[in-house]
Computed example of a mutant assay.
Amino acid sequence: MSVLPLVFTSGWASGINAYAVVLLLGLFGATGLTDEVPGSLQRTDVLVVAGVLFLCEAVADKIPYVDSAWDTAHTVIRPVAGAVVAVLLAGGSGSLPELAAGAVGGSTALMSHLVKAGTRMAVNTSPEPFSNVGVSVLEDLGVAGIITFAVFHPVAAAVVAGVLLLLGLLVLVFLASRIRRFLRRRARRREERRPAGAGGPWPHG
């Protein structure tokens, strides 16, 4: 069976939370729920490191502005992780060239990362912190659900991941224009509240 659907889905999920992907795939492989996961992802040291980093991300991802700083630091890490996981999956199956798998996993992870980072920037324009927590929890549940689904139904999961990626890109475009309009309105209101003649030339005596 081709491993391409699992490569695509894991790439999408890696762009959102790469550590969760490594941890979940490793645990599924170690417990014998799937034969698609290579042994390198099932090693105890890999699972421990992935678990610790996942906990760090779970905390940082729910704090306003800290989440965006974390996303910026992971602009390279997540696509690279998506590519590495894809190469490992392809190497274990032999049904997909490793170079092609790395390209699919890495590019998909990059696109989903951009969606996540852009969405968080928009969410941070909200004055309250609860929206960050809600979005973060939804992302964590989404990654866990889609990876679990992919282990048992890889093709269907890949279709879902593709739809989510497309919707995310559309939402990102909508949010970008919305943020620009918000900033323009705020600047216009600031100008309207400015007293008449403020900032103008000094009157002549």
Rank of each mutant, 00 (worst) to 15 (best):
S95W: 00
S107F: 04
L114N: 04
G142S: 07
D67A: 10
L175N: 11
L89W: 04
F130P: 00
L164W: 05
R184H: 08
V49R: 02
A158E: 12
S2I: 00
S177E: 05
L23N: 04
R194N: 08
H204G: 15
L166P: 01
G200K: 07
V48C: 03
G199R: 10
R181M: 03
A187R: 14
V115M: 11
L138T: 06
E139H: 03
L33K: 14
G32E: 11
A20W: 01
G162C: 08
H204M: 14
M111N: 01
L88S: 10
D71K: 09
P79V: 12
V84M: 15
R120I: 08
V173G: 04
A81K: 07
P38V: 13
K62D: 02
K62Y: 02
G199I: 12
A83G: 14
A13Q: 01
V159Q: 06
I147N: 04
A86F: 10
T125R: 13
F8I: 09
R43F: 09
L167G: 02
E128Q: 11
A100T: 13
P97E: 12
G32S: 11
D35N: 12
N124W: 03
G118R: 06
A30R: 15
V49K: 02
V104Q: 00
A60N: 04
A69C: 06
E192D: 13
F174T: 07
V155M: 11
N132C: 05
T119V: 12
G94V: 02
S112I: 07
I179C: 08
A117Q: 06
N17D: 14
V22F: 11
A103V: 11
A109L: 05
I147Q: 06
G32F: 09
E128C: 02
